[in-house]
Amino acid sequence: MTSFVRRYGTLVALLVIIIAFSIASPIAFGTPNNLINITQQMTLLAIVAIGATLVMAVGEFDLSTAAVVSFGGIFVVFLLKAGVPAPLACLAVLAAAGVFGAVSGFIVARFEVLSFITTLAVGTIIGGITFWLSDGATLFGDIPVGFRDLARGKISGIPTLTFWLIGVAVVAWVVLDKVEIGRRLYAIGGNREAARLAGVRIVSNTMVAFIGSAMLSALVGMLLTARIGSANPTGGGGFLLSAYAAVFLGMTAFREGEANVPGTLVGAAIIAVVGNGLTILGVSTFMQDIITGMIILAAVLVRRTGTQSR
């Protein structure tokens, strides 16, 4: 029983929240259309959170996430304005983000600097670059329709963004759960010294996790820009805490205390559903934050007490 609560409690909580909102607002919330729409609303947060999941798998933190989201949005518009073709611009943004991730990962693994400090510093640098690229202003215009379509519209009734979510989630899930690199990342996260002594290469594998996280954050920056049609140098600022909240919620699901992709999706879904449902019910934004925070605490506490009663 306790084992079931520990593994599936968070998923059950999500379902309970959905059912509760559906009863409270059957016409607006509990419609297939709205539920599909929630998948679109949670996409950006979920992709950032999946990036955070990779880094959490090796037992580290990436505080530069929000800065990379902002950077991705600004840099892509900057390149588009400079006349770079959209596909090339996107690749350049991902490559630049990859470099940032590689630097963080290398410093963390090779010199064993706390990832908190490293990514805080790298994030600050990226923030500075972003402001420098944009002169501190919101960038608008010169965004081709093809680029905007990356995050707008629907394909056979399903929002384009939802496909991004599914794609990224599947790839990340395969990487972490199905191929060898995932075993290595989790081994490092589980016990770095034991993994090292068993022949796992710490530096290169840690770098992979940080590179993945940075590239996903930059992807979100670009999707955000495509979605709203402009880029703001602080546009990603809101993602950091919610993304880690999603990961932590997810760590209470399916696996015992380990960051995992399905769990992160559940975590992101809880945050998105609560926001969507409470707005529909006309609850103020402040109250939404209070409720989201309480859900995270509740989830973690349920798991804790579950573990202790073992």
Binding site: E180, R183, R184, Y186, A187, G189, G190, N191, E193, A194, A195, L197, A198, G199, V200, E256, G257, E258
Partner: peptide, 21 residues
Amino acid sequence: RNEGLITSRSIADNLAVAHLS
């Protein structure tokens, strides 16, 4: 505990980690 086992992973994972191929 500290240098051998990856205690958060399963037995199977611990047996596979050095020879994943």
